[in-house]
Write a protein that binds this DNA or RNA. Structure first.
Lengths: 225, 225
DNA sequence: ACCTCAAATTTGTAGGATGATTGGTTCATT
DNA sequence: AATGAACCAATCATCCTACAAATTTGAGGT
């Protein structure tokens, strides 16, 4: 005899589940506005209260955002990122940097193993943008290009869970990257080491890719002390 | 002109924030029942709807659980665990294993750098438990000791964010770890490599610690294919 | 063409009413 | 006294109506 586990789902939970499916299936695309409350009430056949509790849950989880007077919009397809982000904000820069090291090292390793032609093109585009920004000494543009480059490297790992975690670290990292970039004044070192990393990944030199990540994270750590 | 960023918090968000504080501060302890809706309505001075939307958000996030007819109880102090669990359930074992690799590799490296006397004692206790369980061929006890050992290694990294991520992952991984353990039948290999890892950490041999982690993750990966 | 202001749309908050589930109490029957 | 049925109280679940606040839209006047 199995003692019936939490057998019955509440109406709110059912609605939450349905909305999750709509988002995950792409029927409600990220950035798009979802139907107004009144329509959803009819669609799901529940009261406004029930619907609002469901929507509010997903807002808290970071999947939706509501704007009074405008509507409700799809923000993300994964709740993990927001929870991760909240946790990061309670941590120190060093702690965060070390977790970043963990993710980037694994990402670089997997990227070197799995990168395909499309990945190579993406990385090339972004490292070229870095080079141009560095030449123009446009610090803001460089930071933006740098982040895009890192994302494309992570994307080349083809591990969605890893990508998810890294993407949501980025927001919290933006500030510290800026801070670090200002401290470590040697922009050329930065650019060169990034080129080296991309090179290693393209050539599928796993060890060199890992070592390169180790190198620039170590550099960051130094500039923190 | 700076476009005012979403400045004002909604009432629901304020209530959510206050409840989060109550939980985090330990004023509402895990497992305990929280005051009924009517009391909270008076305490926070909001309507039923507002309060319920706030509570429901935290239920979805996994901080609270409500039981009709009984009350609402504190379940966890961190939303990360539930989010992780949900996300991992959608991921393949390989993806999860790779993220585990990322965390364990960093953890081993930091542990080798930072382990103190107390950490060494903890790790020694747990590896001894592993050895005994292996001798007795008690698979269940071995798995438990194994998990405790990994946690103590992670703990030696003294990076709370890393520890948190790993612990919450471990919860969801228990099943798949079991599965992996059954597939890789060579228990002695398992034990030896763990001894090697702890040894490296105690001797502060960073490279050997990292290499050892790489080795047994690679072994796991093989057994997956 | 431009400005003003009212209306429509949409989410936010309030408060009441009823149903469902659980736990305990009372009380009659055995 | 033990048992079990009926009742009652506490609590969350759902639904309803009403109004407030924010945003967009458009009509009307200058």
């Amino acid at each position: 005899m199995t003692i019936s586990k939490t057998n019955r789902l509440s109406l709110v939970e059912q609605v939450v589940s349905q909305i999750e499916s709509l988002i995950e299936s792409g029927e409600w695309k990220i950035g798009n506005q979802i139907p107004p409350e009144m329509d959803l009430i009819k669609q799901f056949d529940v009261s406004r209260n029930t619907l609002r509790e469901a929507v509010r849950s997903l807002v808290y989880a970071g999947l939706l955002v509501t704007k009074q007077g405008k509507g409700t919009f799809v923000k993300s397809s994964s709740a993990l990122g927001v929870a991760f982000q909240r946790r990061i904000q309670q941590s120190g820069i060093l702690e965060t940097l070390e977790v970043r090291h963990a993710l980037e090292r694994e990402g670089a390793q997997l990227a070197a193993l799995r990168r395909n032609q499309e990945d190579i093109e993406q990385m090339s585009i972004h490292i070229e943008a870095c080079r141009k920004a560095a030449e123009a000494k446009d610090r803001k543009a460089y930071e933006e290009a740098d982040i895009q480059l890192h994302k494309s490297i992570m994307g080349s790992s083809h591990n969605d869970l890893l990508i998810d975690l890294y993407e949501h670290m980025e927001d919290s990292l933006h500030a510290s990257i800026h801070q670090i970039a200002e401290m470590s004044s040697d922009g050329n070192f930065h650019l060169n080491i990034h080129c080296n990393l991309v090179d290693a990944i393209i050539e599928q030199d796993v060890n060199r890719a890992i070592e390169t990540v180790n190198e620039y994270i170590a550099q960051f750590k130094k500039s923190l002390v």
